[in-house]
Amino acid sequence: MATTVHLSLPTSQLRPGDIVLEFGMRVRLPEQEPRTWKGFQGRTVYAWKGQVENLDEVLAEGLVPRAFLCEDRWDGGRWVCELTGAWTVQGNDLAIYAVERAAE
């Protein structure tokens, strides 16, 4: 059985496959590297589009608004909120996240 470690890490130290704990969600980071760009005062900003692993619990408990986990799409005359369970983890080195990571 794989063991996990719990860490507090700045955004730059997140890795593919990490689970970020945010607002009661368990967001698994994708296998691809994050988008990066230069932000305020030249700090590098990192953005990971992850997937909420405990989506049913998040929705049942109302941990975040349902609309935050949807993508709007046009459906033949009306807009609909299509539930995707995607969540973006974003920040620079000033942002610190609680992370579950497989032990090495």
Rank of each mutant, 00 (worst) to 15 (best):
E100D: 12
G76I: 11
V45W: 04
P65A: 14
P34Y: 01
G17R: 05
F40I: 15
V89L: 08
D56E: 06
A95W: 04
D72G: 12
T44F: 12
A47K: 15
L7I: 02
T84W: 06
L55D: 02
E61L: 06
M25Q: 09
L63D: 03
A47P: 08
L9P: 01
A98P: 05
L59W: 06
G42W: 13
Y97I: 08
V27H: 01
E53Q: 13
R101Y: 06
T36E: 11
M1A: 11
V80C: 07
L63N: 10
R28P: 02
G76V: 12
T4G: 04
D75K: 14
V52P: 00
L69F: 09
P34R: 02
K38V: 14
N92D: 15
W74P: 08
A103D: 11
A103M: 12
W37T: 05
Q13W: 03
N92C: 12
L63E: 05
D93K: 11
S12H: 06
G42K: 14
V89I: 13
F40D: 15
T36D: 06
D18C: 01
N54V: 05
V5P: 00
V27W: 00
Q32C: 08
E57Y: 02
R35N: 10
E104M: 04
C70H: 13
S12E: 03
